[in-house]
């Protein structure tokens, strides 16, 4: 564990807490893409298949349970909670995310570290996480104005993988046989997808204006 990875995990945790706060405090999921939340649920379930077979540390196990639990809880809320689901606008959340699932799984079948059930699903989860934010970003562009909590949720979610890139650089220079090129390349793509959001977020913060993404 290094400071960059810990900062990344904490930033990821904060993004989840901000999202839970928004949904539970405002009893509304306006501006949140259910499809992105479903994709993240698939990402965590596919990545943490070793949850009960490989014990790394208490921290690792606890965080995995938090990530799986929170993503499934949000999906459940947006689908079945009688108050929250009313604020879900499926007319703006129209990204066909099943293509992302199919495409990433196909890619994982061809590009993986080892052709085993767990490694293919692990690579699949890494590729899928890189593009999972797309429905959310498209929705924000469609819905124009972004409420503060939703903006902060996306900001922290984008920042966490940026910290992981620093972690991979650090591990590359400090550990000899470190080679996580699947994570690195996907992590770079993932963070790059947030680039324009970060730009407009910074502009709105600088001008102390409401965050607006150009359609």
């Amino acid at each position: 564990m290094n400071i960059f990875r810990f900062a990344g995990d904490m930033t990821h945790l904060i993004s989840i807490l901000v999202l839970l706060l928004k949904v539970y405090a405002t009893k509304s999921c306006s501006g949140i893409s259910l499809k992105t939340q479903e994709l993240y649920g698939i990402v965590f379930l596919a990545r943490y298949l070793d949850l009960f077979t490989d014990f790394i540390s208490v921290y690792n196990t606890v965080m995995k349970l938090v990530f799986i639990g929170s993503s499934l809880a949000i999906v459940w809320c947006m689908r079945f909670h009688r108050v929250v689901k009313r604020s879900y606008d499926r007319d703006v959340d129209t990204f066909r995310h099943y293509f992302l699932v199919g495409g990433c799984f196909l890619l994982a079948l061809f590009v993986h570290e080892k052709f085993s059930f767990r490694e293919v699903f692990w690579a699949f989860s890494i590729y899928l996480e890189a593009v999972a934010i797309l429905p959310q970003l498209i929705l924000l562009q469609r819905s124009g104005n972004v409420d503060n909590l939703t903006g902060q949720y996306v900001l922290f979610l984008g920042a966490y993988r940026g910290f992981y890139i620093l972690n991979w650089i650090y591990r590359y220079f400090t550990e000899d046989q470190f080679s996580r090129w699947i994570s690195c390349v996907s992590g770079l793509v993932q963070t790059a997808l947030y680039a324009d959001f970060f730009y407009y977020y910074f502009i709105s913060w600088k001008n102390n204006a409401k965050l607006k993404l150009p359609a």
């Binding site: 990875r5 995990d9 990821h12 990545r47 070793d50 490989d54 790394i56 690792n60 965080m63 995995k64 990530f67 570290e113 080892k114 085993s116 490694e119 692990w122 992981y164 972690n167 996580r180 994570s183």
Partner: peptide, 10 residues
């Protein structure tokens, strides 16, 4: 063979 070490990152 290279034992794929358990992925220690989240």
């Amino acid at each position: 063979n290279v034992e794929t070490e358990a992925h220690d990152e989240l």
